[in-house]
Design a protein around this nucleic acid. Structure first.
Lengths: 228, 228
DNA sequence: CGCTGCGTTGAGCTTCTTCAACGATCGTGG
DNA sequence: CCACGATCGTTGAAGAAGCTCAACGCAGCG
C-alpha cells in the first residue's frame, strides 16, 4: 500500500486531487509507537501533525496531583495535533498511545505549502477544526453542568450511536480511561455503573455494556431525573 | 467610517488585500442589540458569523436546571460563531449581549466565496480556530483538574497578563458572570474571593481587584498549595 | 508462583451546592 | 425627589456529590 493511498483514506484529505497527495506523500513518515509510549508532551514544539493508521491515541492534560483528564481519544483514520500547524507554538496537551499504534507524521512545512495553494484542503481542515470545537464545547457543558451519572449516560448513548447498536455497546477503552474522559476517577465510575446496573438501566459483561433502558438513560443525560 | 474600514480592524482579516475587503463589505450588515438580548440560540441554523464592533457578548450553555456555563466572552474586535460556517449545521451554544452592542454580521455565502479563493484568509481563519481550540482545552483542564480557588487564581493571573498590569485587575464582567465562567455559582465565588482577601492575596475595590501576592496566586493556580 | 495493573468496595472527609435571608445599588415611575 | 422593585452580591446553615485512603479480588504475564 502506497503512502498516498493511506492519505486518501483520511477524511481530511477527502476530495483532494491525486496530484496534491503525491506532493505530500514523499514528505510524510510512519512512526510506530508501543502501548503507553509518549508521542509528544505538552509544551513540545509542534513540527507537524499525525494520522492514526492503526491503534489508539489519547490526548490529555495532567493536574498537579497526577490526575489525568483525557481530552480526546483518536482511533483509525483520525487526525490529531493539527493545532500545532497554525500557531507556531507548542502543543497544549500530552499525547500517548493507548495501544500499539502506527502513525503517519506529516511535517508542518510540507503541509503548509500544499494548503496555501489548495482551498479545498483548507476547507476540509477548517471543517475538522470546527468539528473538534463543537466536541469540546459539548465536553465543557458536560463537565460543568452535569453530574457523573449524566455524563456517563450521555457517553453511553453517544457510543451507541457511533456503533449503531441500540442495545449493546463495547467500551474500546479501560474503565480507568473512561473515568478520565468523564472527568472523574475509577472508584466513582465503578459505583455509578453498579448503581445503573442495580436500577436495571444497563448490564455489564466485561468490556461490553448492554443498554436495557435507553429511555431512562436519556433522561439522566438531559438531567431530567437523578440516579439517587 | 466605511464598512471595509471596520473589517480591516478585525484580526481575522488582517493582511487581506483591499480588493477582498471591498468584496465583502457590501454583503455585511450591522446589527444592534441591547443588553440581555439573545443573538442566537443553541440549535439555530448558522447563516453567518459575527464581529463585535462595540459591546460584549457571551456564548453559553444552559443546564436543565437553568444554570449557565459561559464558554466565552467576546469584546471589541473579536469574531464569534465562525463554527457555523463549515459545518452546515447549527450553533452549539447560545449567544447573548452582556452590554448594549453593535455587531457586524457576515453572511456565510459571501464569506465562503472569498475564502475559497484566498489562502491568506483561510490561514487567518484556521489560526483563529486553533487559538479557540487551545483556549477550550485549557478550560477543560481547569474545570476538571482544579478546584474553584485554583481556577479563580488562574483567571486573575490571565487577566493580569491581558491587561498588562501586574498589580491591579479590572473585572469587565459581573461576579455572577465570572462565577459562570469558572464553572461555579456566585455564592461559592463570593466565599472564595473573601477567603483570598482574608489571606492577603488580593484586595477588592468594587469592580477592581488588586493583586497583592502574585506568587501565592500562582501556586494556587498550579495546585501546589490549597486555600484552606 | 508471585507480581503488577485494573476494577471493586467501604468509610470518612472535603468541597461545593442548595436554600434562605439580608444589604446595597440602581433605574423607574409616582 | 423619594419610594419601590429588581438585580446583584454577600453570608449562614445544612446537605449532597464526589474524592481520598485503604483494602482486597482478579486476571494476565513474566
Amino acid at each position: 500500500m502506497k503512502v498516498s493511498d493511506y492519505l486518501a483514506t483520511v477524511s481530511l484529505f477527502r476530495g483532494l486531487p491525486e496530484k496534491q497527495l503525491d506532493e505530500l506523500a514523499p514528505a510524510v513518515s510512519i512512526r510506530r509507537v508501543r502501548k503507553g509510549e509518549r508521542i509528544f508532551s505538552e509544551g513540545d514544539k509542534g513540527t507537524g501533525f499525525y494520522v492514526v493508521l492503526e491503534g489508539q491515541v489519547k490526548i490529555f492534560k495532567v493536574g498537579m496531583d497526577g490526575k489525568e483528564q483525557i481530552i480526546h481519544v483518536f482511533d483509525n483514520g483520525q487526525v490529531f495535533a493539527e493545532v500545532a500547524l497554525f500557531e507556531n507554538s507548542v502543543f497544549p496537551a500530552h499525547a500517548q498511545a493507548m495501544k500499539d499504534s502506527r502513525l503517519l507524521f506529516v511535517p508542518k512545512a510540507t503541509f503548509s505549502e500544499v494548503i496555501k495553494t489548495d482551498p479545498a484542503l483548507a476547507m476540509n481542515m477548517m471543517a475538522t477544526l470546527c468539528l473538534r470545537l463543537r466536541q469540546l464545547v459539548n465536553m465543557i457543558e458536560s463537565l460543568s453542568l452535569k453530574e457523573v451519572p449524566g455524563r456517563l449516560a450521555a457517553y453511553l448513548i453517544h457510543l451507541g450511536h457511533e456503533q449503531e447498536s441500540r442495545s449493546s455497546v463495547r467500551l474500546d477503552i479501560s474503565k480507568t480511561a473512561l473515568a478520565s474522559i468523564l472527568g472523574t476517577i475509577p472508584e466513582t465510575l465503578s459505583r455509578v455503573l453498579k448503581k445503573m446496573a442495580d436500577r436495571g438501566l444497563i448490564r455489564m459483561d466485561g468490556p461490553d455494556i448492554i443498554i436495557l433502558d435507553l429511555e431512562t438513560l436519556e433522561e439522566l443525560a438531559t438531567g431530567d431525573i437523578k440516579l439517587v
